[in-house]
Write a protein that binds this DNA or RNA. Sequence first.
DNA 1: CTCATCTCAGCAAGACTGAGATGT
DNA 2: CACATCTCAGTCTTGCTGAGATGA
Lengths: 155, 155
Amino acid sequence: MESTEGQAPSRLRTLPSRLINVIALSANRLVDRALAAADSRRYHYALLAALEEFGAASQADLGRRTGIDRSDIVATVNELAERMLVERSPDPSDRRRNIVSITPAGSQRLRTLDRILAEVQDELLAPLSAEERRQFVDHLTRLAEYHAGTARPRH
Amino acid sequence: MESTEGQAPSRLRTLPSRLINVIALSANRLVDRALAAADSRRYHYALLAALEEFGAASQADLGRRTGIDRSDIVATVNELAERMLVERSPDPSDRRRNIVSITPAGSQRLRTLDRILAEVQDELLAPLSAEERRQFVDHLTRLAEYHAGTARPRH
DNA sequence: CTCATCTCAGCAAGACTGAGATGT
DNA sequence: CACATCTCAGTCTTGCTGAGATGA
């Protein structure tokens, strides 16, 4: 059945840039599956988290905070508003803007998603000990910071 | 200019599954850019590596070895054949098959790509010491192995 | 006039699916 | 007949771009 399912070439199996992609795929699969089971998506969590931490904001600000594209912000706010997790209201002081604010149901949903995502992280890092997890996350953080500047052309 | 370029929410900044995605994006950007400068793509390297390590193979086998979809194998072999890096010839013992083999120019190109990718790995892991790199890659490898089984539905 | 904001329509790349032609 | 292979066409998703409408 798995006659030719054999190993990938060793060059590929050990290449760090490729290993990172393999883990990212697993992480995304775990996260997407867990969020979908709660009728949510990744962008929902990002927007709810930004609103909870920074308070009500325009859609443009939410895009800058979360790195989500302006077009995708529109769709995501639509989905969250349908579910009554955020409210969209015109800014009285600048009528170009929508002020998006989190509802009590949205805050509650955010805490549910926090719990779900904590479980996913635990499953993702399952083979590592507590100390190894600490090191691994430290390394990830330093890599992310190092490459942060070069990440996006922005325009 | 960067008035609202502020920090992402702390929930997002510290989430391991998200950090991994951020690094994967940086890695992909570095790899794609370096390979493109050598008129190559990721799939080129994967196929050349598989042919070098396992010898001539049918396109179906190459797909199973590398995890590349059958449709994408066709296009990639076309590109490599155009560049004279592989040869496609009918299998005399099973005329459904194309036997794909690497040319001397292909082996030489593979070594060039090896060198290019080694430089990319070095840039990718730049902020980590030699010992930290060893640990980091060890952690990645263990995570990849742990999640390997659950990775692909296959059908 | 210029700039920012919100929105929609659509593009481009990557991963994948369906189906036909060929051959075992 | 069932099955494997190669190929092409096309779908779907994600991230992004362009441009129009509104308003500061």
